[in-house]
Design a protein around this nucleic acid. Structure first.
Length: 951
RNA sequence: GGGUGCUUAGCUCAGCGGUAGAGCGUCGCCCUUACAAGGCGGUGGUCGUAGGUUCGAUCCCUACAGCACCCACCA
């Protein structure tokens, strides 16, 4: 093996071999265990969130596969309607073209081309992360199989009356020119104004002042509403107002939606451009007057002078005209919530349009009469409420159920070109025909179409196809094997349905609504099954300071840069390349030069993965600090060097065979206490590991294994093994070699799900030396606590050795004795165990503490002045002569005695409390008694020592 | 307005009813033949505040303060 750990070399070696060998395919035996990859945007690139999430999934998949499960990691990519279409439109913009210049077919073709070019970027990046995904079953949400599932679902829901087309007020993105769902709108607080405007009565005898943040919408006002019990306005209810600027006459109505305290207590009603007003309009059967075009300009419903103005220009014009007419009563600053499109940042304009909806709210009985259950929503709620689907951490259950309790119908049509085109046709009379294709639509129609049919222009919301992912990827609806474009079988429902439900969905909280809930709805409806048993909500990755990562802040990290490292200049280049605003560019460059003056060091995939594991507690955010990752790279190096040590000691000085070729379980078992101790610790560690996997506590998992490897195996077992390996006891030599190998090999298996590359690399050296014939550590079973035996007696012995050694080391360090210097060691007092222990571990103590052979001082013999550590009643002493300052040692002892007296005082306080003794559980009281007794023993020995020094 | 979290060592975080922990940082000694990406030993905390429950509270309860995030129609 190389002298130090070089991740780049190792990582390049294994992935392609694993993939080619079929190691990532379901083995075909064992209990099914499936994880669905949340399909990333096909033209996207891997970010830290993906890398983290995929590491979590990969750990689970590798673990379960090693446990013998029939494991499938279903991968694929999403067509990401708006996002992808926007990228290609931006490309066209550079050529000074729009999609309309190309026309629909040519444009869609161009998007497909872009998908072919960039579609493998993210999947190749996933491979760099090490994901054990079954690429032979990779799917794309717009491939033929999944598209046919989409059509099938649409048609079935339509025929069941659960998809309908309607003219409704929807969130309209005037920049993208499409409707978006409620979820795709963010409410952002902005500084704005509240204007008070006087509306005179039609007869001119009176007037009423309304308050609004959107004066331009008054062009579409159809009423003014006041509270029914508002005495100020009671006399006006039922009267007619003359709408300023347009002169239209509108009524004053009473509705208890109006808050008397807010604004002027009277509200202008614009049902075609406001969701609340729409509701009021429906209640009062008011007309709807749309005053904007689809790109948010004033249309012909308005007086001529405003027509064609953008909504904000119209606002200025309206205000100016009101002011001129003396009708603008007040203007004041006001903070308001503005609905903003997530995709374009455009301010949403509620617009009345024809759209398709999934009915999530109608309560229908089995026979179709009203008053029953919500056909799609309620089963999805039940699945979680009943505990059939569990959220981890649990509190996300509330988020999920509350959302479903208050859900609205889902607007699924988008006025885009990239996506699944809605399988609906219209005849010349406007009648709707739904089917697989035009012919199918005609066949299934109940009426004869009038004239030619034309297909609906719209496509479906991207999340519509995502909602089907749990079953569509498995070959549903099951019309035989599904093939990809190369003719390879990628799914076959008859066989693959065993993977439904999948075991766990690993995903971010931000898509519980977008995706998780909708998968439950669709999967329950169409398969009768839940899509997954557990939902593990992973944390959001932030930067080291806890700030959200964003390109415009310059605090993003590319996981591949962490893996491979990157120099400062290229990093600055790539981070600022896509930033168009010079100030932002400058700010980002400055930050990067400050944060990474030497670029980013290469830490390798394994260290990155280990870092993710170590950070994956139940908290909602994790702050990614490169320092932490560097620490875990050091861990990899530690493991690497431990393996080198083991190999060196297997290969020489005795030839391989004796310590190496022995199969596990062969021979007489561990010979030395140290071996029995480390095997006991391994057993305990593996028991903890099993728990951590069950509870998804990857942070604990990582820490448990880290501590075992570093603090137990390396710090103590390797060190304790050195004297044994160099000793004369041939049985101990052979056995120690074997145990070194056995523990290391088990640790490699235990760590493999976290750090697959380095464990594979080392295992190739270690595995065969134990006689294992597998070709990969991934083919070995996951180590279990049950595989190893505990030995409490040996553990006690080794704990004693560790205490003695720590005591000596402490004296050496505090007394500034050079680590290189070999010093004498004296022993006094002690109990019956101590003499045999000293004899047994003499070599270890002498080697690890750098002492001469220990000398016992008999009870009444003369004692030289010495510094002492106390282990039980045993005093472990280093003579002062020439080494230690007497006063310093006295001071040290005094301090130690004071500390222990403090501890004893605490114990006495507890035990002196009659209530404690009476009420605390017996074992707690006993433990306290034991502690006080132990402290007193130590105190006695220390006082004895202090007395000797005074002589 | 509803909901969900968080507050523990200089920093980032575990712990969660019975002796306060880790990583990083920091200080001292050491290139001791697996590893200086290392070894050995230290320093560092009245666990946000105030009450309550309990023999005992960082942990449970209540209130308060501060900080996040999610949902929601106040014009």
């Amino acid at each position: 093996m190389e002298k130090s750990f070089e991740p780049a070399q190792i990582e390049s070696r294994w992935y392609a071999r694993w993939e080619a060998s079929g190691a990532f395919k379901p083995p075909g035996q064992g209990e099914p265990y499936c994880i669905l990859l949340p399909p990333p945007n096909v033209t996207g690139t891997l970010h830290m969130g993906h890398a983290f999430q995929q590491t979590v999934m990969d750990m689970l998949v590798r673990y379960q596969r090693m446990r013998g499960m029939n494991t499938l990691w279903q991968v694929g990519t999403d067509h990401a309607g708006i996002a992808t279409q926007k990228i290609v439109e931006n490309q066209l913009a550079i050529e000074e073209k729009t999609r309309h210049d190309l026309g629909r077919d040519a444009f869609v073709e161009r998007v497909w081309k872009w998908k072919e070019e960039s579609g493998s970027t993210i999947t190749n990046q996933m491979r760099r992360i090490g994901t054990a995904a079954d690429w032979t079953r990779e799917r794309f949400t717009m491939d033929e199989g999944l598209s046919s599932a989409v059509r099938k679902v649409f048609i079935e829901w339509y025929r069941a009356g659960l998809i309908y087309r309607g003219n409704r007020l929807v969130n309209w993105d005037p920049v993208l020119g499409t409707a978006v769902s409620d979820l795709e709108v963010n409410n952002v607080e902005r500084d704005g104004h509240m204007w008070s405007i006087r509306y005179p009565t039609a007869d001119g005898s009176d007037s009423l002042v309304v308050a609004t943040t959107r004066p331009e919408t008054m062009l579409g006002d159809v009423a003014v509403a006041v509270h029914p019990e508002d005495e100020r306005y009671a006399h006006l209810v039922g009267k007619t107002l003359k709408l300023p600027l347009s002169g239209r006459e509108i009524p004053v109505i009473a509705d208890d939606y109006v808050d008397r305290e807010f604004g002027t207590g009277s509200v202008k009603i614009t049902p075609a451009h406001d969701f609340n007003d729409y509701a009021i309009g429906m209640r009062h059967k008011l007309p709807l007057i749309t005053i904007f075009t689809l790109d948010a300009r004033v249309n012909d419903e308005a007086p001529e002078k405003y027509r064609g103005l953008d909504r904000y220009d119209a606002r200025k014009a309206v205000l100016a005209d009101l002011d001129a007419a003396g009708l603008l009563v007040e203007t004041k600053a006001h903070k308001l919530q503005v609905p903003v499109s997530q995709r374009s940042d455009a301010v949403i304009e509620p617009m009345l349009t024809d759209q398709w909806f999934v009915d999530l709210t109608s309560e229908v009985q089995a026979d179709g009469r009203p008053g029953g259950r919500k056909a799609i929503t309620e089963p999805a709620l039940d699945a979680v409420r009943s505990g059939e689907i569990k959220f981890v951490p649990e509190n996300w259950t509330t988020t999920y159920t509350q959302w479903l309790d208050n859900i609205q119908d889902w607007c699924i049509s988008r006025q885009l070109w990239w996506g699944h085109r809605i399988p609906a046709w219209y005849d010349e009379a406007g009648t709707i025909f739904v089917g697989e294709d035009e012919a199918d639509a005609r066949v299934n129609a109940t009426t004869e179409p009038v004239g030619a049919l034309r297909q609906d222009e719209d496509v479906l919301d991207t999340w519509f196809s995502s909602a089907l992912w749990p079953f569509s990827t498995l070959g549903w609806p099951g019309d035989g094997p599904v093939k990809n474009e190369r003719g390879e079988i990628v799914a076959n429902w008859d066989q693959d349905r065993i993977f439904l439900p999948s075991a766990v969905l690993v995903t971010g909280f931000d898509i519980i609504f977008f995706w998780v809930a909708r998968m439950v709805m669709a999967t329950k409806y169409f398969t009768g099954q839940i899509p997954f048993r557990e939902v593990y909500i992973n944390a959001i990755v932030r930067d080291a300071e806890g700030q959200k990562m964003s390109k415009s802040k310059g605090n993003t990290l590319d996981p591949l840069d962490l893996i491979d490292g990157i120099e400062l200049e290229p990093l600055v280049q790539k981070s600022t390349k896509s930033l168009l605003i010079p100030q932002v560019r400058e700010k980002v460059e400055k930050r990067i030069r400050k944060d990474y003056p030497d670029g980013i060091p290469a830490i390798g995939t394994d260290a990155l993965r280990f870092t993710f594991a170590a950070l994956a507690s139940y908290s909602r955010t994790i702050n990614f600090d490169i320092k932490r990752a560097e620490g875990y790279k050091a861990f990899c190096n530690k493991l690497w060097n431990a393996a080198r040590f083991v190999l060196m000691n297997i290969e020489s000085p005795t030839p391989p065979g004796e310590g190496g070729a022995k199969a596990p379980g062969e021979g007489s078992g561990p010979v030395t206490e140290a071996e029995r101790w480390i095997l006991t610790r391994l057993k305990q560690t593996l028991a903890e590991v099993e728990q951590h996997f069950i509870s998804y506590r990857f942070d604990h998992l990582a820490q448990t294994l880290y501590e075992f490897v570093w603090n137990e195996y390396c710090d103590w077992f390797l060190e304790l093994s050195k004297p044994a390996l160099n000793g004369d006891d041939a049985a101990a030599v052979a056995s120690t070699r074997h145990t070194l190998l056995v523990v290391l090999e088990s640790v490699l298996r235990a760590l493999h799900p976290i750090i697959p590359f380095i464990t594979e690399e080392i295992w190739k050296e270690i595995g065969p030396r134990l006689g294992f014939s597998e070709t990969s550590v991934y083919a070995r079973p996951y180590p279990l606590a049950a595989d190893f035996a505990a030995d409490n007696a040996a553990t006690a012995e080794i704990e004693w050795v560790k205490n003695a050694l720590s005591g000596i080391r402490k004296i050496r360090s505090e007394m500034n004795i050079s680590p290189a210097r070999t010093i004498p060691l004296l022993l006094a007092d002690g109990d019956a165990n101590d003499r045999p222990r000293v004899a047994k571990f003499a070599a270890q103590i002498a080697f690890l503490a750098r002492t001469e052979t220990p000398q016992w001082i008999e009870t009444d013999a003369e004692e030289p002045a010495a510094a002492a550590a106390v282990v039980g009643t045993l005093r472990v002493m280093i003579p002062l002569a020439g080494l230690i300052d007497l006063d310093a040692e006295k001071a040290r002892l005094t301090k130690e005695i004071a500390r222990i007296e403090g501890e004893i005082k605490k114990c006495e306080g507890k035990l002196g409390n009659a209530n404690f003794v009476a009420n605390a559980p017996a074992e707690v009281v006993a433990q306290e008694r034991q502690r006080i007794s132990d402290w007193n023993t130590t105190l006695g020995a220390l006082r004895e020592q202090a007395a000797k020094l005074r002589e």
